Simulated assay, not measured.
Amino acid sequence: MLHALLIVLPLGLIMAIGWIVKRIGLVTDTGVAEMNGMLYWVSMPAILFRSTIKVDPAHFSNFPFMCGVYGVFVVLPFISWVLARLRGLPRDRLAVSVLVSIRGNNVFMGLPAVTIALGEPGLVSYGIYLALSLVVYQMISIAMGQLALSGELSIKSLLDTVRKLAGNPMLGACVLGVTGAFLGMGELPGWLDQTLGILGNVGSGVALMALGGSLQIEHILSSVRRVWNDILIRLFLSPLMTWGALTFMDVDPMLTKTAVLVAAMPAAVNNFVLAQGMGMDGSYAGEVIITTTVFSIFSLTLWISLLGV
């Protein structure tokens, strides 16, 4: 457990530094927003492209992995829906719970966590995970959130989802990377590979600092009472179901460990933007993001220990 804590500790410390520099005024709200913009449009697309273009196309016939991961993507929102209904949450909050059930912080926090915990083999597996799951994960989470909010899926909502995904630079980077992998372009020129690698290394640290700077933890205890079901789903049930499904499907151990760690990530920051844009309870989404991010430092220690990393 101590070894696992030491792996997670750098994540917590870098986020804490981001929180401190924001609170003492070295970085303003505008600065945090600008950092997030740089990450969203430059750093993260660079590392995602670099990771996915190196994926062996043979992995796209890894049906056991896809069945296991996609199965969790489909089942988990319904479990979250039932639990939120049992709590009597209003529909705009219930929809948030459904939306965030599979929308973890896979990039801004997942990438640094996998890199620190599993090293280069984990980064390779991370590229495979994203290449095989990112589009499906985006579509299912947004569609299920819309279904929970309105009680029905419309052609308009589906077309709007596709339009939003088409403008996502990180998704675009993955699509370009997968296309390059199928075209046999995985061996990038040295200068380009190093450039993308530097952007990715910078992005991991900046992402954690920006995440820490955006946290407002003053009312964390009162938030826990309101969002405990989302903490349970996001930080514990999601990785547990992923681990069980991939173990049952006899998936490669490194790919399984990577997928479990990614599944254990806290709610993605962009859930707040999505929730507001879709007419859900944005303030509730913010509370889920804050509480799951803070508690993930402890839950990730548990999962890394259990995985034997």
Rank of each mutant, 00 (worst) to 15 (best):
P57T: 12
P57I: 10
P57Y: 07
P57Q: 05
P57E: 03
A58C: 06
A58R: 11
H59T: 06
H59P: 06
F60M: 12
N62T: 08
N62R: 11
N62A: 14
N62M: 13
F63A: 03
F63H: 14
F63R: 12
P64W: 02
P64V: 03
P64I: 00
P64K: 09
F65N: 02
M66W: 00
M66R: 07
C67Q: 05
G68L: 02
G68F: 04
G68S: 09
V69Y: 09
Y70Q: 06
Y70C: 10
Y70W: 15
G71W: 10
G71F: 12
G71T: 13
F73W: 07
F73N: 03
F73Y: 12
F73C: 04
F73Q: 04
V74H: 12
V75E: 09
V75Y: 11
L76W: 01
L76T: 03
L76R: 02
P77L: 12
P77S: 11
P77R: 12
P77I: 11
P77Q: 14
F78P: 01
F78R: 00
F78H: 01
F78K: 00
F78S: 03
F78M: 01
F78W: 11
I79Q: 00
I79L: 11
I79V: 15
S80I: 01
S80L: 02
S80F: 01
S80H: 02
S80V: 01
S80R: 03
W81Q: 04
W81F: 15
W81S: 10
V82S: 05
V82Y: 05
V82T: 14
V82N: 01
A84L: 04
R85E: 00
R85S: 00
L86G: 01
R87L: 13
R87V: 04
R87W: 07
G88Y: 14
G88W: 08
L89T: 03
L89H: 09
L89F: 10
P90G: 15
P90N: 15
P90Y: 15
P90M: 13
P90W: 15
R91C: 01
R91V: 13
L94A: 03
A95F: 06
V96W: 10
V96I: 12
S97M: 12
S97E: 08
S97Q: 14
V98M: 10
L99D: 05
L99V: 05
